[in-house]
């Protein structure tokens, strides 16, 4: 059982996470991660087979920064708006150094520039959350994508 304040802080972290991505605030999204973070998007198939191939792999915060810089400056991608719904948050365990193993489900809808939309992605976040100063941040976020045949393309993070 964790303190109610901590539970609220973790819920807020997830809400901020979705809001940053949904409002194209990728640079703010970056600051929800600790400096030693790992971020991966993994097809469910590979996770089940124990195969290491990802859809996106950032082994540290610099690789996350590089992703954002590339998206902003060196990639062309579909014009879209996302909406994340993050639910079923489970704080599962504490880690040895005072962090928390947390899992949550997500769905993400995507709308195009003509106002049409569809369910783009759904799956599970398998995360580690740590205290970072006064805040809590993600030290690990593994996105397991259930509908892993990606519609269209994958540009902005899930």
């Amino acid at each position: 059982m964790i303190a109610a304040e901590l539970r609220f802080a973790i819920d807020d972290l997830f809400a901020d996470y979705g809001a940053c991505l949904d409002n194209d605030r990728l640079e703010d999204w970056l600051e929800l991660f600790s400096e030693d973070c790992v971020y991966k998007i993994v097809p469910r198939e590979n996770a089940e087979l124990g195969l290491p191939v990802t859809l996106m792999l950032c082994e540290n915060k610099n690789m996350l920064r590089d992703r954002i810089v590339s998206l902003r400056q060196a990639n062309e991608y579909s014009v879209h708006t996302d909406k994340h719904l993050i639910t079923n948050v489970r704080v599962k365990d504490t880690t040895d150094d005072g962090g928390y193993s947390v899992e949550a489900n997500y769905t993400m809808y995507q709308a195009d520039n003509e106002g049409s939309g569809s369910l783009y992605s759904f799956g599970t976040y398998i995360d580690e959350v740590v205290h970072d100063g006064d805040a809590v941040k993600f030290r690990r976020k593994i996105v397991i994508v259930d509908n892993w045949s990606i519609p269209h393309m994958l540009s902005t993070p899930i």
């Binding site: 097809p43 198939e45 590979n46 195969l51 290491p52 191939v53 892993w148 045949s149 990606i150 519609p151």
Partner: peptide, 10 residues
């Protein structure tokens, strides 16, 4: 074999 990716392109 290291794994798979898949995408549906319209």
């Amino acid at each position: 074999v290291l794994g798979y990716q898949r995408q549906s392109i319209h």
